[in-house]
Design a binder for these strands. Structure first.
Length: 270
DNA sequence: ACCACAACCTGGCCGC
DNA sequence: TGCGGCCAGGTTGTGG
């Protein structure tokens, strides 16, 4: 579930809590959560580790540790992080528990168990292949146009491709395409430069607004401590099937593209 | 290189 | 109540 704005919200909430904290001990209850290294070695190496900073790249959270190690966490569909007192036991969906040096624990919960963690010396080992950060200077309209050139896949599926631009997921792809007035089924290569310029602008616009609203809390996403984001209140088309388009009044349609629900207005999006 | 699709998991909801 | 089917915000691996 969490896309760039949801992960950035976690980063902002976690950073002041974890900056300078020590991880005393780590327990893994569902070994497949740990992608690298093996769960046993992960537990061993995640002992007495000082956290320097909490960063983000695309939908990945990066915990910079002293001693040139980085703990990378991807929440995938249903991952959550929550602080608890030491005395609170892990529930059935808690797969990793970090014991901190302030009588608190950080629990990683994940109902669907898709989320993964890596402990690596070089983050590029995991992050290589990601496209540019959409809110940074490195992301430019010309770059986007270049990546869409010659692509026959739908623009919707290309926006979900993390190698083209990092951090856009199903919600923000649908919203950006609606605001751009572009039909999600269009082949990437069919977009004019003027349309790419608009799409570039709208991607940044919806992501910034999503961050401002602390993400979209529909069924499962909650922030640290169980707080909800509010960007779902700003959605124009996402999961609005059958409702009137806020711009032209025609009924919002739901189709499937790249195996994902796609919502759009057949009147406004050409 | 690119594209489509199954697989990974659990739970909620809907119709019968 | 129970069962089958569908749905869910993401990524990977496989085959064409």
């Amino acid at each position: 579930m969490p896309e760039l704005p949801e992960v950035e919200t976690y980063r902002r909430d976690l950073e002041p809590e974890l900056h300078g904290r020590m991880v005393r001990k780590t327990e893994v209850f569902w070994p497949r959560t740990i992608a690298v290294p093996a769960a046993e070695e992960f537990q061993r190496r995640m002992t007495n580790q000082l956290i320097d900073a909490v960063g983000r790249r695309g939908k990945y959270l990066l915990f910079s540790l002293a001693a040139h190690q980085t703990l990378i966490v991807h929440l995938r569909m249903t991952g959550e992080l929550h602080f608890h007192a030491d005395s609170v036991p892990p529930d059935k969906h808690t797969h990793v528990r970090f014991w901190l040096d302030d009588n608190r624990t950080l629990h990683y919960r994940d109902m669907r168990k898709f989320g993964r963690m890596w402990l690596v010396a070089d983050p590029l080992e995991v992050l290589r292949g990601l496209g540019p950060e959409p809110l940074e200077e490195e992301f430019q309209p010309d770059f986007l146009a270049d990546r869409l050139r010659n692509r026959t896949a739908s623009i919707k599926s290309l926006l979900l491709n993390q190698g083209i631009v990092a951090g856009v997921g199903n919600i923000y792809a649908d919203e950006a395409l609606f605001l751009s007035g572009i039909d999600p089924r269009r082949p990437g290569k069919s977009l004019s430069m003027a349309e790419v310029d608009i799409l570039f602008e709208k991607i940044r616009c919806v992501l910034n607004l999503g961050i401002e609203k602390c993400g979209s809390s529909l069924q499962t996403y909650v922030r640290l401590g169980g707080m909800r984001g509010t960007f779902q209140d700003e959605h124009q088309v996402f999961r609005k099937t059958g409702e009137p388009c806020p711009r032209c009044g025609r009924s919002i349609q739901r189709i499937v593209l790249a195996q994902r629900s796609t919502h759009f207005c057949p009147g406004c999006q050409k």
